[in-house]
Write a protein that binds this DNA or RNA. Structure first.
Lengths: 182, 182
DNA sequence: ACTCGATGAGACACCACTGTCTCATTTGAG
DNA sequence: CTCAAATGAGACAGTGGTGTCTCATCGAGT
């Protein structure tokens, strides 16, 4: 009987990704519960969004863990990371558009941890001579987020095939659009 | 005396990029006019957003025109395009997060025109052997938008230097992150 | 069968934002 | 200067979403 909190969060994320202005009533309906129950679990819209933020951070950190981003060649680590991040891309896309979170000058320190991890990954690749040094690790991190969001959106809109998600992001991020002579 | 309509739109875009949920009153204040005047020029928030959309499309098309995206090598055309698109990146970032526009299943045909133009550019590059063919033109177009928005955001947040805007976007989109042997 | 906790449905007041109105003031042209 | 148009400030009700409440129902464990 007890509502599965995480399942509610996933339904909310799935809906809010497509319609960020969805009503609490719509969210509840999408999760298959009543508005009353939704409010019992999350005290207000803010709390729901915060919970989604926490979930997003947790999923990203879990993905980074599974991908073992600190091991092996950096390009391979990026490939593994994107692969593991794919299931969280939709949630990430929602949080990305929710700039309200960062408006309150009080951004969750989880993002800082994640950013630091990503930046370290790209910096490691640069120091190993695998990544070019004229693109800052910070920008590469931002670009990774941007590409993940773009890919999630494009798939959601049906513009690109879901199966191409990770290869699209990885190949563009690492190799770029220009044809390379081997 | 007559309020400069375009100036109002720019102020609105500048504010809404940072706070997409800004009140009409906040928008008016940011534009240096009263709410009454704002409502006299744009009949409601929808009209304002639509006007911003039109402005964004017009700026992108003007940029594509100035960049002469159909002339010369495709990679150079992309470089010129990004360069010309830089002033519109902020507005683009706002519109990008305003998925409401596309929610109403009635997307402005201007976007379709722009998309077609971008897709044609990337396809041209592929057919000339300049771009790799394992990344679809549609995805490259989406990625270009995503990188533009990411760069605009990163600069707005102070994470990357404004002067690196075009090189960051262009170099990553065309060359990727991996170091290349010349 | 009983009971207790959780849920759904609905009602309710509250609040912020919106759109519109009025009126005094300002601006610019003739 | 004079006047008409535009603007700013404020008031006003309407609206949609929110948070809270009550009450009936449901379901699982005893």
């Amino acid at each position: 009987m007890a509502v599965d909190r995480e399942q509610v969060l996933r339904a909310a994320a799935s809906l809010l990704m497509r319609k960020s202005s969805a009503t609490m009533d719509e969210v509840a309906r999408a999760a298959g519960i009543s508005r009353a129950t939704l409010n019992r679990q999350f005290a207000g819209r803010d709390a729901l969004v915060r919970a989604l933020e926490e979930l997003g951070i947790a999923e990203c950190e879990a993905a980074a863990e599974r991908a073992a981003v600190d091991d092996g060649p950096a390009p391979d680590a990026v490939r593994r990371l994107v692969l593991e991040l794919e299931p969280a891309a939709g949630l990430l896309a929602f949080l990305y558009s929710e700039n309200q979170l960062f408006e309150g000058e009080e951004l969750n320190e989880g993002w800082a941890r994640l950013d630091a991890r990503m930046v370290a990954l790209f910096r490691r690749g640069q120091e190993a001579g695998e990544f070019r040094i004229d693109l800052s690790p910070v920008w590469l991190t931002e670009a990774l987020y941007g590409l993940l969001v773009s890919a999630a959106w494009a798939i959601c809109e049906g513009r690109v095939a879901p199966k191409d998600f990770s290869s699209n992001v990885t190949e563009l991020l690492l190799g770029g659009a220009v044809r390379r002579e081997k």
